[in-house]
Design a protein around this nucleic acid. Structure first.
Lengths: 116, 116
DNA sequence: ACAATAGTTTAGTAATGACTAAATTAATGA
DNA sequence: TCATTAATTTAGTCATTACTAAACTATTGT
Protein backbone atom coordinates (compact mmCIF):
# COMPACT_ATOMS: atom_id res chain seq x y z
CA UNK A 1 0.00 0.00 0.00
CA UNK A 2 3.03 2.21 0.15
CA UNK A 3 2.75 2.72 -3.61
CA UNK A 4 -1.00 3.21 -3.45
CA UNK A 5 -0.80 6.07 -0.95
CA UNK A 6 2.16 7.54 -2.76
CA UNK A 7 0.16 7.50 -5.99
CA UNK A 8 -2.96 9.00 -4.41
CA UNK A 9 -1.02 11.77 -2.68
CA UNK A 10 -0.65 13.71 -5.95
CA UNK A 11 -3.75 15.78 -6.83
CA UNK A 12 -3.19 15.34 -10.56
CA UNK A 13 -3.40 11.60 -10.23
CA UNK A 14 -6.60 11.77 -8.19
CA UNK A 15 -7.92 14.05 -10.93
CA UNK A 16 -7.12 11.33 -13.45
CA UNK A 17 -8.80 8.63 -11.38
CA UNK A 18 -11.82 10.89 -11.05
CA UNK A 19 -11.95 11.27 -14.81
CA UNK A 20 -11.79 7.50 -15.25
CA UNK A 21 -14.65 6.95 -12.82
CA UNK A 22 -17.39 6.21 -15.32
CA UNK A 23 -15.61 4.54 -18.20
CA UNK A 24 -12.21 3.80 -19.67
CA UNK A 25 -10.43 6.56 -21.58
CA UNK A 26 -7.51 6.85 -23.93
CA UNK A 27 -4.35 8.64 -22.82
CA UNK A 28 -5.16 11.41 -25.28
CA UNK A 29 -8.64 11.92 -23.85
CA UNK A 30 -7.17 12.11 -20.39
CA UNK A 31 -4.62 14.63 -21.56
CA UNK A 32 -7.29 16.78 -23.18
CA UNK A 33 -9.56 16.51 -20.14
CA UNK A 34 -6.89 17.67 -17.72
CA UNK A 35 -5.59 20.63 -19.66
CA UNK A 36 -2.62 22.76 -18.69
CA UNK A 37 -0.27 19.82 -18.51
CA UNK A 38 1.91 18.08 -21.06
CA UNK A 39 1.12 14.80 -22.67
CA UNK A 40 4.42 13.54 -21.31
CA UNK A 41 3.46 14.42 -17.75
CA UNK A 42 0.12 12.66 -18.12
CA UNK A 43 1.88 9.57 -19.43
CA UNK A 44 4.17 9.57 -16.40
CA UNK A 45 1.26 9.87 -14.02
CA UNK A 46 -0.48 7.01 -15.76
CA UNK A 47 2.63 4.88 -15.36
CA UNK A 48 2.68 5.60 -11.61
CA UNK A 49 -1.01 4.72 -11.28
CA UNK A 50 -0.48 1.54 -13.24
CA UNK A 51 2.48 0.45 -11.10
CA UNK A 52 0.42 1.09 -7.98
CA UNK A 53 -2.25 -1.19 -9.40
CA UNK A 54 -4.84 1.58 -9.48
CA UNK A 55 -5.45 1.50 -13.23
CA UNK A 56 -5.13 -1.07 -15.98
CA UNK A 57 -4.25 -0.38 -19.58
CA UNK A 58 -5.40 -1.91 -22.83
CA UNK A 59 -3.99 -1.33 -26.29
CA UNK A 60 -6.32 -0.63 -29.22
CA UNK A 61 -4.80 0.48 -32.47
CA UNK A 62 -2.66 3.51 -31.80
CA UNK A 63 -4.56 4.34 -28.64
CA UNK A 64 -4.08 3.05 -25.15
CA UNK A 65 -7.16 2.86 -22.98
CA UNK A 66 -6.91 3.22 -19.23
CA UNK A 67 -9.49 2.12 -16.67
CA UNK A 68 -9.59 2.14 -12.88
CA UNK A 69 -8.74 -1.14 -11.18
CA UNK A 70 -11.11 -1.44 -8.24
CA UNK A 71 -9.04 -4.03 -6.40
CA UNK A 72 -6.24 -1.48 -6.34
CA UNK A 73 -7.95 0.45 -3.57
CA UNK A 74 -8.42 -2.59 -1.38
CA UNK A 75 -5.20 -2.31 0.64
CA UNK A 76 -6.13 1.24 1.56
CA UNK A 77 -9.66 0.18 2.42
CA UNK A 78 -8.35 -2.56 4.71
CA UNK A 79 -5.92 -0.23 6.40
CA UNK A 80 -8.72 2.26 7.04
CA UNK A 81 -10.98 -0.44 8.45
CA UNK A 82 -8.19 -1.50 10.78
CA UNK A 83 -7.82 2.06 12.02
CA UNK A 84 -11.55 2.30 12.43
CA UNK A 85 -11.76 -0.86 14.52
CA UNK A 86 -9.04 0.56 16.75
CA UNK A 87 -11.16 3.64 17.22
CA UNK A 88 -14.04 1.44 18.36
CA UNK A 89 -11.73 -0.39 20.76
CA UNK A 90 -10.70 2.90 22.29
CA UNK A 91 -14.33 3.87 22.79
CA UNK A 92 -15.02 0.53 24.43
CA UNK A 93 -12.02 0.86 26.74
CA UNK A 94 -13.11 4.36 27.72
CA UNK A 95 -16.63 3.14 28.47
CA UNK A 96 -15.36 0.28 30.62
CA UNK A 97 -13.04 2.58 32.55
CA UNK A 98 -15.93 4.96 33.09
CA UNK A 99 -18.01 2.15 34.51
CA UNK A 100 -15.22 0.91 36.76
CA UNK A 101 -15.41 3.72 39.33
CA UNK A 102 -13.37 6.87 38.81
CA UNK A 103 -15.30 9.56 36.89
CA UNK A 104 -12.53 10.50 34.46
CA UNK A 105 -9.50 8.26 34.94
CA UNK A 106 -7.97 9.47 31.72
CA UNK A 107 -5.09 11.30 33.36
CA UNK A 108 -2.76 9.94 36.02
CA UNK A 109 -2.08 12.73 38.52
CA UNK A 110 1.40 13.29 39.77
CA UNK A 111 2.02 13.24 43.54
CA UNK A 112 2.96 16.67 44.78
CA UNK A 113 4.96 16.21 47.97
CA UNK A 114 5.90 19.77 48.87
CA UNK A 115 3.45 22.45 49.82
CA UNK A 116 4.31 26.15 50.35
CA UNK B 1 -8.22 15.73 2.33
CA UNK B 2 -5.21 16.92 0.42
CA UNK B 3 -3.36 17.26 3.72
CA UNK B 4 -4.66 13.94 5.00
CA UNK B 5 -3.30 11.96 2.06
CA UNK B 6 -0.09 13.96 2.12
CA UNK B 7 0.33 13.11 5.80
CA UNK B 8 -0.45 9.43 5.33
CA UNK B 9 1.92 9.06 2.39
CA UNK B 10 4.96 9.05 4.70
CA UNK B 11 5.63 5.64 6.30
CA UNK B 12 7.04 7.20 9.45
CA UNK B 13 3.78 8.98 10.09
CA UNK B 14 1.74 5.85 9.56
CA UNK B 15 4.11 4.20 12.02
CA UNK B 16 3.30 6.92 14.54
CA UNK B 17 -0.44 6.55 14.00
CA UNK B 18 -0.05 2.82 14.46
CA UNK B 19 1.73 3.39 17.75
CA UNK B 20 -1.06 5.69 18.91
CA UNK B 21 -3.72 3.12 18.09
CA UNK B 22 -4.49 1.92 21.60
CA UNK B 23 -3.89 4.96 23.79
CA UNK B 24 -2.43 8.43 23.83
CA UNK B 25 1.34 8.80 24.15
CA UNK B 26 3.79 11.58 24.93
CA UNK B 27 6.14 12.86 22.25
CA UNK B 28 9.02 11.28 24.14
CA UNK B 29 7.34 7.87 24.21
CA UNK B 30 6.73 8.10 20.51
CA UNK B 31 10.34 9.04 19.90
CA UNK B 32 11.59 6.09 21.97
CA UNK B 33 9.14 3.70 20.31
CA UNK B 34 10.23 4.62 16.81
CA UNK B 35 13.97 4.49 17.29
CA UNK B 36 16.57 5.51 14.73
CA UNK B 37 15.12 8.95 14.26
CA UNK B 38 15.70 12.27 15.99
CA UNK B 39 13.34 13.81 18.49
CA UNK B 40 13.21 16.81 16.18
CA UNK B 41 12.09 14.73 13.24
CA UNK B 42 9.36 13.11 15.34
CA UNK B 43 8.16 16.51 16.47
CA UNK B 44 7.92 17.64 12.86
CA UNK B 45 5.95 14.57 11.88
CA UNK B 46 3.59 15.16 14.78
CA UNK B 47 3.06 18.72 13.62
CA UNK B 48 2.14 17.49 10.15
CA UNK B 49 -0.29 14.94 11.57
CA UNK B 50 -1.85 17.56 13.80
CA UNK B 51 -2.30 20.04 10.93
CA UNK B 52 -3.93 17.31 8.89
CA UNK B 53 -6.37 16.73 11.77
CA UNK B 54 -5.20 13.16 12.26
CA UNK B 55 -4.01 13.59 15.84
CA UNK B 56 -4.84 15.89 18.72
CA UNK B 57 -2.44 17.09 21.39
CA UNK B 58 -2.83 17.77 25.09
CA UNK B 59 -0.36 19.42 27.41
CA UNK B 60 0.42 17.91 30.81
CA UNK B 61 3.30 19.34 32.75
CA UNK B 62 6.37 19.23 30.55
CA UNK B 63 4.94 16.46 28.40
CA UNK B 64 2.68 16.69 25.43
CA UNK B 65 0.34 13.79 24.85
CA UNK B 66 -0.81 12.89 21.36
CA UNK B 67 -3.85 10.82 20.43
CA UNK B 68 -5.41 9.81 17.12
CA UNK B 69 -8.38 11.88 15.99
CA UNK B 70 -10.83 9.47 14.43
CA UNK B 71 -12.78 12.12 12.56
CA UNK B 72 -9.53 12.96 10.76
CA UNK B 73 -9.84 9.88 8.58
CA UNK B 74 -13.37 10.65 7.53
CA UNK B 75 -12.57 12.64 4.38
CA UNK B 76 -10.49 9.75 3.13
CA UNK B 77 -13.22 7.28 4.04
CA UNK B 78 -15.79 9.31 2.11
CA UNK B 79 -13.53 9.62 -0.89
CA UNK B 80 -13.00 5.87 -0.89
CA UNK B 81 -16.73 5.20 -0.61
CA UNK B 82 -17.34 7.51 -3.55
CA UNK B 83 -14.81 5.59 -5.63
CA UNK B 84 -16.38 2.35 -4.53
CA UNK B 85 -19.87 3.41 -5.56
CA UNK B 86 -18.49 4.34 -8.96
CA UNK B 87 -17.12 0.84 -9.24
CA UNK B 88 -20.59 -0.54 -8.56
CA UNK B 89 -22.06 1.78 -11.16
CA UNK B 90 -19.59 0.47 -13.71
CA UNK B 91 -20.59 -3.09 -12.93
CA UNK B 92 -24.25 -2.18 -13.29
CA UNK B 93 -23.68 -0.45 -16.61
CA UNK B 94 -21.77 -3.45 -17.87
CA UNK B 95 -24.55 -5.80 -16.82
CA UNK B 96 -27.21 -3.69 -18.51
CA UNK B 97 -25.19 -3.48 -21.68
CA UNK B 98 -24.71 -7.23 -21.59
CA UNK B 99 -28.43 -7.71 -21.31
CA UNK B 100 -29.19 -5.28 -24.14
CA UNK B 101 -28.08 -7.51 -26.99
CA UNK B 102 -24.46 -7.43 -28.11
CA UNK B 103 -22.29 -10.01 -26.30
CA UNK B 104 -19.43 -7.70 -25.35
CA UNK B 105 -20.16 -4.11 -26.42
CA UNK B 106 -17.32 -2.72 -24.36
CA UNK B 107 -15.23 -1.68 -27.35
CA UNK B 108 -16.38 0.30 -30.36
CA UNK B 109 -14.83 -1.29 -33.43
CA UNK B 110 -13.38 0.87 -36.11
CA UNK B 111 -14.64 0.43 -39.66
CA UNK B 112 -11.95 -1.07 -41.80
CA UNK B 113 -12.67 -0.11 -45.38
CA UNK B 114 -9.68 -1.55 -47.21
CA UNK B 115 -8.72 -5.17 -47.32
CA UNK B 116 -5.39 -6.58 -48.60
C1' DA C 1 8.24 3.46 -47.88
C1' DC C 2 6.54 7.66 -45.92
C1' DA C 3 3.84 10.84 -43.35
C1' DA C 4 0.69 11.36 -39.65
C1' DT C 5 -1.12 10.14 -35.25
C1' DA C 6 -0.84 8.33 -30.36
C1' DG C 7 2.02 7.50 -26.62
C1' DT C 8 6.26 6.72 -24.00
C1' DT C 9 10.87 7.82 -22.51
C1' DT C 10 14.71 10.80 -21.37
C1' DA C 11 17.41 14.78 -19.70
C1' DG C 12 17.22 18.49 -17.11
C1' DT C 13 15.05 21.90 -13.64
C1' DA C 14 12.70 23.77 -9.72
C1' DA C 15 10.09 22.72 -5.67
C1' DT C 16 9.08 19.85 -1.91
C1' DG C 17 10.12 16.90 1.91
C1' DA C 18 12.43 13.93 5.42
C1' DC C 19 16.14 14.13 7.99
C1' DT C 20 20.11 15.91 11.41
C1' DA C 21 22.38 18.94 14.59
C1' DA C 22 21.99 22.77 17.16
C1' DA C 23 19.44 26.71 19.11
C1' DT C 24 15.27 27.81 21.55
C1' DT C 25 11.04 27.66 24.50
C1' DA C 26 8.40 25.81 28.51
C1' DA C 27 7.64 23.68 32.93
C1' DT C 28 9.41 21.65 37.13
C1' DG C 29 12.47 21.02 41.07
C1' DA C 30 16.42 22.29 43.96
C1' DT D 1 17.69 31.81 40.25
C1' DC D 2 19.76 27.94 38.06
C1' DA D 3 19.86 23.26 36.33
C1' DT D 4 17.08 19.59 34.30
C1' DT D 5 13.75 17.49 31.53
C1' DA D 6 10.51 17.65 27.52
C1' DA D 7 9.53 19.32 23.38
C1' DT D 8 9.54 22.66 19.36
C1' DT D 9 11.91 25.43 15.96
C1' DT D 10 15.48 26.59 12.71
C1' DA D 11 19.13 26.13 9.20
C1' DG D 12 21.02 23.35 6.12
C1' DT D 13 21.61 18.81 3.34
C1' DC D 14 20.26 15.13 0.36
C1' DA D 15 16.73 12.62 -2.18
C1' DT D 16 12.48 12.56 -4.44
C1' DT D 17 9.14 14.29 -7.55
C1' DA D 18 6.19 16.93 -10.81
C1' DC D 19 6.98 19.18 -14.60
C1' DT D 20 8.67 20.62 -19.63
C1' DA D 21 10.77 20.08 -24.07
C1' DA D 22 12.46 17.11 -27.14
C1' DA D 23 13.72 12.57 -28.82
C1' DC D 24 12.01 8.22 -29.58
C1' DT D 25 8.65 4.01 -30.56
C1' DA D 26 4.60 2.02 -32.43
C1' DT D 27 0.55 1.79 -35.38
C1' DT D 28 -2.12 3.12 -39.24
C1' DG D 29 -3.40 5.16 -43.86
C1' DT D 30 -1.85 6.39 -48.46
Amino acid sequence: MEMVLQALAAPRRREILRFLRRRERSAGEIHRALGGVTFGAVSQHLAVLEHAGLVSARREGRSRFYATRDEGLRPLREWLDEMWSDALDRLKDAAEAEEAGAPRPRVVRKNRRSKP
